[in-house]
């Protein structure tokens, strides 16, 4: 149960953060195509949140 919550909530959180960043990044790219690399990186930064969630979930699951 707690493992599921950990993954689900962090998943939602990173999705929300990525949405915000990606829309800004696309806007910036429209002005300067060279920003693609930077935009891409900024967009995937929040992915770490869900990785943390997953690690916590796995630890919980393993210690059951």
């Amino acid at each position: 149960m707690s493992a599921a919550v950990a993954v689900a909530v962090t998943g939602l959180a990173s999705a929300w953060a990525e949405k915000e960043i990606a829309s800004a990044a696309v806007g910036a790219m429209a002005e300067n195509e060279k920003l693609f690399g930077k935009g891409l990186i900024l967009t995937v930064i929040p992915e770490t949140i869900v990785i943390f969630g997953m690690v916590v979930a796995i630890l919980l699951w393993l210690n059951m």
Partner: peptide, 10 residues
């Protein structure tokens, strides 16, 4: 592809 790039960049 994206994640391996990201691990390098970030």
């Amino acid at each position: 592809g994206l994640h391996s790039l990201r691990l390098h960049y970030v």
